[in-house]
Amino acid sequence: MDTDLDQNYSCTNLYDHRPVARVLIPLAYSIICPVGLLGNALALHVIFLNITKLNSITLYSANLAVSDILFCLSLPLRAVYYGLGFHWPMGEGLCKAITLLFYVNCYAGVNFMTCLAIDRFVALVFPMKLTKWRKVKNARLVCIAIWLLVLAQTLPLLTIRLTKKEHDNNITCMEYPNFEGLFKGLPFLLIIGVGIGFVVPLVTIIACYSILTRKLRLAAKSNRLTERSGRTKKARGVIAGVVFVFMVCFGPYHLDLLQYMIRKLIYDPDCKELQSFQISLHITVCLMNLNSCLDPFVYFFACKGYKQKLMRMMKWQVGTHFSSVGRTSHESSGTGDMRASRRNTGMTMNNVREAQ
């Protein structure tokens, strides 16, 4: 433990990437935060508009959206911290609050995405046997249990000091070197955390996707209509979306943490290795933050109302654009062309209706 502390204080190169980080990381957060807030707020809006049709999948989606919104709310102050060159002038209490908000909603999101994948799996593979587990009442209990579990896992962060004064008088917040040397079993604890928080959910989701894909492939061979079913496409879309978000956003961070903790168990990494780990952590945490922007793609498959609302918004934007172009063109060509155009449009719409 003393060796870790001594090395931590002797390493003066841990934040040498400050000039690049203070520009790129706040820039990334300035994009992730508004996009994540908008996409998840739209999901909540759609879900509450259809509150009478609430089911297990929309309930998990709503909780995922809430966790993403809270997650995004922690990003502006983190962006300020990075913009100031890894300096936190806002005190220990606010650092703890932001850290708790960050990790609680990160791992709540992981668990709710796992629930979405399991729900779609059960709905198609065991539609009759396990239907009672997908009732809204049971889904509510699962959501409450997830929030309590994640809080229990992260509340211990409030008992330790998360800020640290560096050799250059900068105060860092929520940085890995601030935890090193606090207790001897830190690598073991973090490895267990990676296993529970990432490996178990990932294996569960991949298993659901693999079994479901195999079942659908076998069903498609015997019945072509099964392959074209909107329900099966929805299930595969939800689980594939969750796997994609897991691999892109959560995979790099947890694998990076895992490899360094394994090295810590074998030998004491030097300052150069610790600095490389610091840089990689800042990059992979940015990727992990990206999940709040990618989760709306999961809602696109999970929530029918979300997909319809998004498509209507896109059509309205495109329609508005072409209407403005059309008006300019018609004004220059005269009213006779305008009337002819309207007649042609009316004929075309009638033909489409007849074809439908």
Rank of each mutant, 00 (worst) to 15 (best):
K137P: 00
M113A: 10
Y81L: 01
N105K: 04
C95H: 07
R78M: 12
A79W: 01
A97Y: 02
F126I: 03
M113S: 10
V122F: 08
L141P: 00
Y103T: 08
A117V: 05
M113H: 03
N111L: 11
A117E: 11
K132P: 03
V122L: 14
A108E: 12
R78Q: 15
L141G: 00
R120E: 14
L75R: 07
L100Y: 12
D119A: 13
L124Y: 01
P127S: 10
M90F: 15
I98D: 14
I118Y: 04
A97L: 12
P89F: 06
C95Q: 12
I98F: 11
C72K: 06
V122K: 13
V125C: 06
K132I: 06
N105L: 05
A139W: 02
H87W: 04
A97Q: 09
V110T: 11
V122P: 06
K135L: 01
C106E: 15
R134A: 09
C115P: 01
V122R: 12
I118S: 02
L130I: 01
L116D: 10
R134G: 05
N111C: 12
C115E: 11
P76T: 03
K129P: 00
L116T: 07
M90A: 13
K132L: 02
F112Y: 15
Y81D: 03
K137R: 14
G83D: 08
R78V: 06
K137Y: 04
C95G: 14
V80C: 13
F112K: 07
V136S: 06
F121V: 08
R140Q: 05
A108L: 14
R140A: 00
D119P: 00
